[in-house]
Design a protein around this nucleic acid. Structure first.
Lengths: 277, 277
DNA sequence: TATACTAATGACTAATCGGTCAATTGTCAA
DNA sequence: TTGACAATTGACCGATTAGTCATTAGTATA
């Protein structure tokens, strides 16, 4: 398990520098100081590695943003949304670079492309929730279009952050985008992206996660964790899933406990959704 | 020369479908119905091929946009700018796909990355010119930021056009973006991209083209062209370069004559810049 | 027809890749 | 110390690649 972490870290560096295809397994193992065979003890294939990386970072990223959108009051939410996103990009800039460079069809792995697509839509969903909360009915006809604009602006400025990350002023950038978003939300009338187009794009629905899947994930995570408040909280949440006895306030507190554990961010996100908190 | 065209066309299709790296020279030659050896009679390497494709399309693309910006009056210019761009994208969607997918570091060819960067900046320059003409002094502090927003929005919507190009309404899309651009131009006050940042990014200056380079290009193009009005115009423009005798109006007319010839678009763009028309 | 030339071919090379597996090393209970 | 088992190694395999070049096919001239 430690070995797996090592490989992921070192591979991330190389992928960010050279791209996924251009980095060989040999290079990765050299960089780790292990043999090629050892690599295949931790990962079934090179594809499984990049897949793990995507999962590892995207789940954390979406969980963080979703938490902000759910728990910051409207005043300042938009700023927090942008600022959190850009901070995450800077913090995990190696991963962000991979995501930028390998945007679309570069991978010849269908599973991976679908995965990226799903995370992309989850992010859209979070943004949509925020936009609805912030502007309510006044943007009912333009909300999908607004989400798309936010995404476009953010993508573009993110590129700047990654390639010239000599300490850009993320606060100013976020403020600038807050102003722009408000302008577009309050005055734009001609929407290009309608609900129809969104539905046409989203073809297969996002699968709803079942209780059983949640329980299975929790069981797995428990084994990976050392004894701690987080693990204890997770066990209590597991019991709550099997037999609801605790009050919403307690459940919310338990989820809060595990929120910042890197391995639990995704579960905390899923639980928030499941318990509708 | 015909062979070169054939290879470029067929390769374009394959690159759009599978990506550059994933397409082998063998596949290209099979698709053309020629041998692998024949490929290397037309191109020194696979890299030279993609390089030629980038040049061929980007020069046309930038020339077209630049022409619109220079020759359409302010009323309706913004719409024309967006509409022309999106139409070009649809018309050359195979090339646009390559450009989208292979965005950045995918190519391990420095020359190519630099080339893309240069075209990118040329496009920014055209957009900046337009923005300055449209809004004048009122956006003097926000113009670079505005250009960057326009780019971000356009990039994002372009993706949509390419991947779901089932006859989207380009007119509506353009109108929608016109409205948004006007909103941002007239009401946004907090600019993130300042002139300083632009200068920091643009490191090496865009080289100014010399008269000698222009003459050389014209000589080369003349040999590739059959007898026509376009060729005759080109010869007259060549003489004008060597010894200015014609009035600006005539020069402008001559440039107009060659504007729509696929092989002359770039030269017409360069000449417009050179004669400052 | 014979000659000289160019255009085109495709078998070949050398390199690199992801992935495998027999052999080796390390570990720990008896 | 021994022996059984797990962890680790790296030489090796088959597949694929860009690029080469001796050979052949096609064509124009004398």
């Amino acid at each position: 398990m430690i070995k797996k972490q090592l490989i992921m870290e070192k591979a991330l560096e190389l992928f960010a520098k050279q791209g996924f295809e251009a980095t060989s397994v040999q290079q990765i193992t050299d960089h780790c100081g292990i043999s090629k065979g050892a690599f295949y003890l931790s990962f079934k294939s090179k594809d499984e590695l990049i897949l793990s990386l995507i999962d590892y970072f995207m789940t954390q990223f979406i969980s963080d943003i979703d938490y902000q959108v759910r728990n910051v009051n409207n005043e300042g939410l938009l700023f927090k949304y942008y600022h959190t996103t850009f901070q995450s990009f800077v913090q995990h800039s190696d991963f962000a670079k991979i995501l930028m460079n390998e945007q679309a069809q570069t991978f010849n792995n269908k599973e991976l492309i679908e995965k990226l697509h799903i995370y992309d839509r989850l992010l859209d969903k979070v943004t949509l929730t925020m936009v609805e909360r912030l502007y309510g009915d006044e943007i009912i006809h333009t909300k999908y279009d607004l989400v798309y604009c936010i995404k476009g602006l953010m993508n573009n400025y993110s590129k700047l952050i990654l390639f010239y990350n000599n300490s850009l002023d993320l606060k100013l950038l976020s403020e600038s985008l807050v102003e722009k978003t408000n302008l577009l939300a309050k005055h734009a009338t001609i929407a290009f992206i309608s609900e129809d187009i969104i539905h046409a794009i989203e073809q297969p629905n996002l699968e709803v996660i079942t209780k059983e899947q949640l329980l299975e994930m929790i069981t797995q995570k428990k084994n990976e964790m050392e004894e701690s408040i987080e693990k204890e909280s997770l066990i209590l949440l597991e019991q709550q899933l099997l037999e609801p006895t605790l009050s919403p306030a307690i459940v919310k507190g338990l989820i809060e406990n595990i929120r910042n554990h890197p391995h639990c961010k995704w579960i905390s996100y899923l639980l928030r959704n499941y318990f509708d908190l």
